[in-house]
């Protein structure tokens, strides 16, 4: 597999295939980090797109291309925080300014997988931001505690503690949901 340095070097010269290689390599992780912060998948996709474009525009500022992923994910986090702040302001708009809900649950609930996804998103929303980031990076993306600690500037022990509490909260949420259904 071509290493990040080579792809970054080619992308700097405008090689679209090289940039697409970077996008495909890091889109999943970028999405997980963004989702942990903005909570809505659609917003997370917007953050991903914006972060990749910003990264491309500033490729010369990536001083260690071999660690492009870590650099990109910091951009993703910054963009996600900005979007969340914006959404916070938008959601704080007066009630009469908001569109009326149609009451339609949407096509996402049409399949079991979509329902599971909705449940997970709902459960994740109850976690703290750092718990969401830790559990998504660890259990979805397969990152190690040390790698998560480096990204979030947290000691490894703190990462483990957040992971423990996040998993417990998600399991509790699932148990409550099942008991309601049963």
């Amino acid at each position: 597999m071509t290493d990040d340095s080579a792809l970054v070097e080619r992308a700097r010269r405008g090689d679209a295939a090289a940039f697409e290689g970077l996008v495909r390599r890091y889109a999943r992780q970028a999405h997980a980090v963004a989702l942990a912060i903005v909570k809505e998948p659609a917003d997370a996709e917007d953050v991903c797109q914006d972060a990749f474009i910003r990264a491309l525009e500033r490729l010369e500022e990536c001083r260690n291309p071999a660690r492009f992923g870590a650099w990109l994910l910091r951009i993703v986090r910054n963009r996600a925080h900005s979007v969340r702040r914006y959404l916070g302001v938008r959601q704080a708009a007066p009630l009469d300014a908001l569109p009326l809900s149609s009451g339609d649950p949407g096509p996402a609930r049409e399949t079991d997988r979509s329902r599971l996804r909705e449940d997970l998103l709902e459960a994740l929303a109850d976690l703290t931001e750092v718990q969401r980031e830790v559990v998504l990076l660890h259990d979805l993306e397969g990152w190690k505690h040390r790698e998560i600690g480096e990204l979030l500037d947290l000691p490894e022990g703190t990462v483990r503690a957040h992971l423990f509490h996040a998993r417990r909260a998600l399991r509790d949420h699932e148990a409550i949901r099942r008991s309601k259904e049963g």
């Binding site: 889109a27 999405h31 997980a32 998948p41 996709e45 998504l136 660890h138 998600l170």
Partner: peptide
């Protein structure tokens, strides 16, 4: 590990 695969884009 929790199964969070439904969130995998």
């Amino acid at each position: 590990r929790l199964d969070l695969s439904p969130l995998d884009p």
